[in-house]
Write a protein that binds this DNA or RNA. Structure first.
Length: 591
RNA sequence: GGUCCCGUGGUGUAGCGGCCAAACAUGCGGCCCUGUCAAGGCCGAGAUCGCGGGUUCGAAUCCCGUCGGGACCGCCA
């Protein structure tokens, strides 16, 4: 070993000990005579002192040393002179008086500073990710992620789960996201697909009698990137046999409640037990199925109060079966015309044709696009419903329900950001249940599963599949945290007939179903336990726990928005011979 | 496929039609300095302003295109 101790562990108790340390030069302070070096390793920082009077060789060696050089020092731990302790450092009461310095590897000047927390262009960070990861914030994030995964493994192990690996090379599936394909050398024209999730395999493990399975599973989806989406990402994939919805939810809730208490003790839960909402309720109140509960600004249905208002916009929407809903932007009555126009412009992105409003400035006249159409009584009723007070701004959207919900949900999030309503130290977990089993896809003219193909409908709603599928509910549950869906799960179908019925409902031809899922259907005929599970997204959860704005910050080597690894420069062209082996010919895109 | 934003020394920013072959901070190099911890002081090097074209007497600054990056829509069962 190059070191007897880590840099971060030395304390008063070590005073007098001779130690060897090795690490990176975090910072060097040369006083002409005495020289200080802050030596850093993953475990912390310690001050090394070289005094030319007592150890001229060591002092001489440190003359050349620069930031990020890797060195080894031999020295003695001693108390710092009174008054020169550094309370900001865990090791600040002591220092290491060095007698010997060995340079293990010099370093070029880094393209950005490691010892400072400053904004650096993300492309540069990614190109030199190995340097970026040295920085405190990133090393903290990577450590946090380790602790999250470690907690999960320990917890599930203690609860009788076993971790089973499933193949990365598997089979393409219809539905869902675009697959990453891997050409087969041995089978010309055939392809493996990387798993979008180990869904079928974990169900087969239930058939296999594993009963309690989990995996920290890498998943692959070839879709466009977002701040919370990468081409490859990590799920905690877990599945249990002989359980009902309640059992899986209880387990996941206990797991994550205990985990955040241990991993992020400075954060508090918004509520425990976690609030639960039906899909219907969460949409009515927040306009989206992954709400942020940390603030109010809830949506209110005002259809009954405006139906005969004489205001064309509202009446037209209602006449076409549309919706009129509103939210109260607390304290925003002083928004200027321009600011409201900006909100309106924002609303148009989501299909709204406009925004109606009532502004209630504290010491001025009410301003409104439509209040003049209302009787004093209905105006009063609106105010009451929206809990309006002087100083508030009431925003109304009238349109198709989907547009109304989405627009108001977006405005709610936008306004909360502007007003800084969300406490960053609060974790608002909640559950959303009772999703529609399927929804009608206009483009494809067929029913689409809300969750996935293997979700079981509510037992009492199975008859509805034949008569009114849109009314059936699925045994699905989503885990939501601070504006993000961080996990989804369901009780699965374990019966061949029901599974085939669902395939048929979503328009999967029987022969296609058999070709793609024959193994699963067949397995269901050999004694399959009722089972269900959940798949929380590790990246998103770590992102939120770390307080980061995107998941790249909690992934050691992420890809950029164009799905490119800018450090390794992947993807990249390959040798013609490789293509030949794979029976692949590249057809360049037109243009 | 689409919309929007960004691109100035190594890094982060300022400059937004002439005062700019470009300013500040930090980093980098040299010298001085024995108790600092974002050490300090002095000196110095370093960008033809992503690239190409255009407008103009004059472009870092305006316009068009292009490349790179980011946010979002579509997409993501």
């Amino acid at each position: 070993m190059y070191k007897t101790h880590t840099c971060g562990e030395l304390r008063r108790a070590h005073i007098g000990q001779q130690v060897e340390l090795a690490g990176w030069v975090h910072r060097r302070r040369d006083h002409g005579g005495i020289t200080f070096v802050d030596l850093r390793d993953r475990f912390g920082l310690v001050q090394v002192v070289a005094d030319p009077a007592t150890s001229p060789q060591a002092h001489q060696k440190l003359e050349d040393v620069r930031n990020e050089w890797v060195i080894q020092v031999t020295g003695t731990v001693r108390s710092r002179p009174p008054g020169s302790e550094n309370p900001h450092l865990a090791t600040g009461e002591i220092e290491v008086e060095t007698s010997e310095v060995r340079i293990l590897n010099p370093a070029k000047t880094t393209p950005f500073s490691i010892n400072k927390d400053e904004e650096v262009d993300e492309n540069t960070r990614l190109r030199y990710r190995y340097l970026d990861l040295r920085r405190e914030q990133m090393s903290r994030n990577i450590l946090l992620r380790h602790r999250v995964v470690k907690f999960i493994r320990d917890f599930l192990n203690d609860h009788g789960f076993i971790e089973v690996e499933t193949p990365i090379l598997f089979k393409t599936t219809p539905e869902g996201a675009r697959d990453y394909l891997v050409p087969s050398r041995l089978h010309p024209g055939e392809f493996y697909a990387l798993p979008q999730s180990p869904q079928q395999l974990k169900q087969l493990l239930m058939v296999a009698g594993v009963e309690r399975y989990f995996q920290i599973a890498r998943c692959f989806r070839d879709e466009d990137q977002r701040g919370d989406r990468q081409p490859e990402f990590t799920q905690l994939d877990l599945e249990m046999s002989f359980v009902e919805r309640e059992d899986v939810m209880a387990l996941a809730e206990e797991l994550f409640t205990k985990m955040v208490a241990e991993v992020t003790p400075h954060k508090r839960l918004f509520a425990s037990p976690w609030p639960r909402f039906t899909y219907r309720e969460v949409m009515e109140r927040f306009g989206k199925d992954n709400p942020d509960l940390r603030y109010g600004l809830e949506l209110k249905d005002v259809r009954d109060l405006v139906e005969n208002s004489g205001f064309k916009v509202f009446e037209a929407a209602l006449a076409q079966g549309g919706d009129v809903r509103a939210l109260n932007a607390k304290g925003c009555a002083d928004y200027t015309r321009k600011q409201i126009d900006e909100l309106t412009e924002y609303a148009r992105n989501f299909g709204a044709k406009g925004l109606a409003y009532i502004a209630l400035p504290k010491d001025q006249e009410m301003r409104s696009t439509f209040a003049k159409f209302l009787t004093p009584e209905s105006l009063e009723a609106l105010m009451t419903r929206l809990e309006a007070e002087p100083g508030d701004l009431l925003l109304f959207v009238a349109d198709r329900p989907a547009v109304v919900f989405e627009t108001l949900a977006r405005l709610r999030v936008l306004l909360a950001e502007r007003l800084q309503l969300a406490d960053p130290d609060v974790l608002a977990f909640c559950w959303v249940t009772d999703f529609p089993f399927v929804s009608w896809s206009e483009e494809e003219q067929r029913w689409d599963p809300s969750h996935h193909l293997f979700t079981s409908p509510m037992p009492e709603d199975i008859p509805l599949l034949d008569v009114d599928p849109g009314k059936a509910r699925g045994q699905q549950y989503d885990m939501v945290l601070n504006n993000y869906e961080v996990g989804g799960g369901s009780i699965r179908i374990h019966d061949r007939q029901l599974q085939e019925k669902v395939f048929a409902l979503i328009g999967l031809e029987p022969d296609v179903a058999r070709e793609r899922f024959g193994h699963l259907l067949e397995a269901f005929e050999y004694g399959t336990p009722p089972h269900g599970g959940i798949a929380p997204g590790i990246d998103r959860i770590c992102m939120i726990l770390a307080g980061e704005p995107n998941i790249r910050e909690v992934i050691a080597f992420p890809k950029n928005q164009a799905a490119r690894d800018v450090m390794g420069d992947a993807p990249s062209p390959v040798e013609p011979k490789q293509l030949e082996d794979l029976h692949i010919r590249v057809v360049p895109p037109k243009n």
